[in-house]
C-alpha cells in the first residue's frame, strides 16, 4: 500500500509537468485548430534557457524561471508570426508540415556548437535536494516545488481566461474566430498572446522537468511532448481544465504502469490509451461540443 501511495506521489509530480506542456497544445489547438508539433521543442528550449540562466548568467531559481518564460514566450510569438501566420488559411497538411519543420529547426539550432552542442548536459542543482519522510512515504522538495509551480500556473491561467478581458477575447476567438473579429477583437494579438502563454508554460514545464530528471539533450522534448499531447486529447482538446486533468492522469498511468505492468511497455501504454480515446470518445473526457473528427 505504501508503495502504491509512493507511486501516486511520483505520478502526480510527473503528471503536473505533462499538464504544463499540454495546456500549450490545447490552447493553440482551441484557437487556431493546429497541432503545434514544435511545442515540445519550446519545452526543450525552456529547459536549456533555464540551464544557461543558472550556469552562465548565475541567476537564482525564480529569476531563471521568469527569464526562461520570457524567452520562450518571445520565441513562441516569433515562430507564430514568421512561420504559421502566413499559412493560416492554407491547407492543414501544409501547416502541420511547417510545425514539423520548425521542430527540426529548433532541435538542430540547439545542437549547434554555438549554443549547447550535441552532448547531454546536466541540469544544475539550483535548489539542494532534500527528502522528507512521512510514515514510510518519501517526498523530495523538488517534487513539491514541481507540484506547487504547476498549481500556481494553472490557477493563474484559469484566472486569466475566466476573469480578464484578454481571456474573454481568447474564449471568443476559440469559439468563432470570424465572429470575434467582427466584434472588434484583434485576432492577431489574441493568437500571439495564446502562443506566448502556452510557450511560457512549456518553459516552466521544461525547468521543473530539468530539476526532476536532470538530463538535457536536444530531443528531450519529444517524448514528454507526445505524452502531453495525449493528455490534451484525453482531457478534450481545446479545453484548458481538461488538459490539466489529462496531464495528471497520464502521469499517474505512466508511473503506475511502469511499476505494475512493465517498465519497457509504459511508453506504449500512453499511445494505446490515445488510440482508444480517439476511437471511442474523440471529444475527450471534458469535451461537450460535437467535435468533427
Amino acid at each position: 500500500m505504501t508503495e502504491f501511495l509512493q507511486q501516486i506521489i511520483n505520478g502526480i509530480s510527473l503528471g503536473s509537468v505533462y499538464a504544463l506542456i499540454s495546456i500549450g497544445y490545447t490552447m493553440v489547438y482551441g484557437i487556431i485548430k493546429l497541432i503545434n508539433f514544435a511545442h515540445c521543442d519550446i519545452f526543450m528550449v525552456g529547459a536549456y534557457t533555464g540551464y544557461f540562466a543558472i550556469t552562465t548568467l548565475r541567476l537564482g531559481f525564480i529569476p531563471a524561471l521568469f527569464f526562461s518564460m520570457a524567452v520562450c514566450a518571445l520565441l513562441g510569438v516569433v515562430i507564430e508570426r514568421v512561420a504559421y501566420k502566413p499559412l493560416r488559411n492554407s491547407a492543414k497538411e501544409t501547416l502541420l508540415i511547417t510545425t514539423i519543420g520548425v521542430e527540426l529547426f529548433l532541435q538542430n539550432i540547439i545542437k549547434t556548437k554555438a549554443l549547447a552542442g550535441p552532448n547531454v548536459l546536466n541540469f544544475p542543482e539550483v535548489i539542494p535536494t532534500a527528502t522528507f519522510k512521512i510514515g514510510g512515504l518519501q517526498f523530495s522538495n523538488i517534487q513539491l516545488i514541481t507540484l506547487g509551480i504547476s498549481v500556481i500556473m494553472c490557477a493563474a491561467l484559469q484566472f486569466l481566461i475566466s476573469k480578464t478581458n484578454t481571456g474573454r477575447a481568447m474564449r471568443a476567438t476559440s469559439y468563432d474566430r470570424d465572429a470575434a473579429a467582427l466584434m472588434g477583437i484583434n485576432i492577431n494579438r489574441i493568437i500571439s498572446v495564446t502562443f506566448a502563454i502556452g510557450s511560457a508554460l512549456a518553459a516552466t514545464g521544461g525547468i521543473v522537468f530539468g530539476m526532476l530528471y536532470p538530463k538535457l539533450e536536444p530531443i528531450m522534448g519529444v517524448m514528454p511532448g507526445l505524452k502531453a499531447f495525449v493528455a490534451a486529447v484525453l482531457g478534450g482538446i481545446g479545453i484548458v481544465p481538461g488538459a490539466m486533468v489529462g496531464g495528471l492522469s497520464i502521469g499517474l498511468i505512466e508511473t503506475l504502469s511502469k511499476v505494475y505492468i512493465s517498465s519497457g511497455l509504459s511508453d506504449a501504454i500512453a499511445f494505446i490509451i490515445l488510440i482508444i480515446i480517439l476511437l471511442v470518445k474523440p471529444t475527450g473526457l471534458f469535451g461537450k461540443r460535437n467535435v468533427k473528427v
Binding site: 497541432i35 492543414k92 486529447v233 494505446i272 488510440i275 480517439l278 476511437l279 474523440p282
Partner: peptide
C-alpha cells in the same frame, strides 16, 4: 480499418502513436 475513420490531425496523431507502439513493442 478502425483508424481510417479519423481524419486530419487526429489520424496523424493516431498513426504517430501506432508507430511508437510498434517501436516500443520491438524494443521489448
Amino acid at each position: 480499418y478502425p483508424i481510417l475513420r479519423l481524419t486530419g490531425d487526429y489520424l496523424a496523431i493516431c498513426t504517430l502513436g501506432f508507430g511508437e507502439i510498434v517501436k516500443v513493442f520491438i524494443q521489448n
